[in-house]
Design a binder for these strands. Structure first.
Lengths: 137, 137
DNA sequence: CTAAGGTCTGTAGCTGATACAGGCTCAAGA
DNA sequence: TCTTGAGCCTGTATCAGCTACAGACCTTAG
């Protein structure tokens, strides 16, 4: 299987094949995540295979919760042929720490919330354990 | 201990006693989370004890990850003396579901990320398991 | 009296998109 | 060939949830 004849595609097609929102592609262009693509004679954006792969990379990074800033960093390491595994590891580990901290936060919230909800009688009374918990100093 | 003589406080003091950012207080006013407070003769905002308690309620709800929309709902139930425990329970349980879904998402991300980072050699080589994982289709 | 700090207003900026208006352009059918 | 509907172009507005800043007042301690 050769890739020789892969034709450039339009923005709409790029959106379709990557699952990215049409407008978001333009947004990524303005914030420098995606480069200004070549244009057709009439000014239509034209994406070749390397740009398709780049956006797929972005989408997968986004799925893993990397911020645009972090994605920019990862893309820089991909683009820069002198990148090292250690540099990538640093970014990924920092993000992993973030994710773990968020999980811990949410689990604390979950515990408080479920304990409080459990004290609800759930009836038609105007007295509620949740409200009391939120009101008490 | 009586509360009779609790004096109204300024916006700066309210920020201090609630831990809320000074500007955020004004923001909450514009979006209807906090009411327009009474003013001094010279136009300074003046918060009495009931408004202090209201903002503390908001801050605690925020700590538990309720959105402003949800907080508005909770405040409505607090303000409306015909509120029922069942109504509050509904809001709180919906939020609990949200929180649990977010935890599940983040745990999936955490798993993928830590598995991938574990495959990093962390050396000076330009080949990296994390980048490969993000690049592969 | 003066200087430092608090407060007032309106507005801009942030992240990460998403949406919409108004105008071209392209492709397919009659 | 004409037409019509879809796709693409641009710039700009909107969303949540704040945060920050400028420039003008006001208050208070020394």
């Amino acid at each position: 299987m050769d890739n020789r004849s892969v034709k450039p595609i339009s923005r709409g097609e790029l959106a379709r094949v990557t699952g990215c929102n049409l407008e978001t592609i333009r947004y990524y262009e303005t914030v420098g995540i995606m480069p200004n693509p070549p244009r057709t004679a009439k000014g239509y954006r034209s994406y070749d295979d390397s740009l398709v792969r780049r956006l797929k990379f972005v989408m997968r990074s986004r799925d893993l919760g990397f911020s645009l800033e972090e994605i920019r960093g990862l893309l820089g390491l991909v683009d820069d042929r002198t990148q090292t595994c250690a540099q990538v590891q640093t970014v990924a580990e920092a993000h992993l720490d973030d994710v773990q901290a968020k999980i811990a936060d949410l689990m604390r919230i979950e515990r408080v919330l479920s304990e409080t909800v459990a004290r609800c009688t759930g009836d038609g009374a105007p007295k509620c354990a949740v409200i009391d918990a939120l009101l008490e100093a």
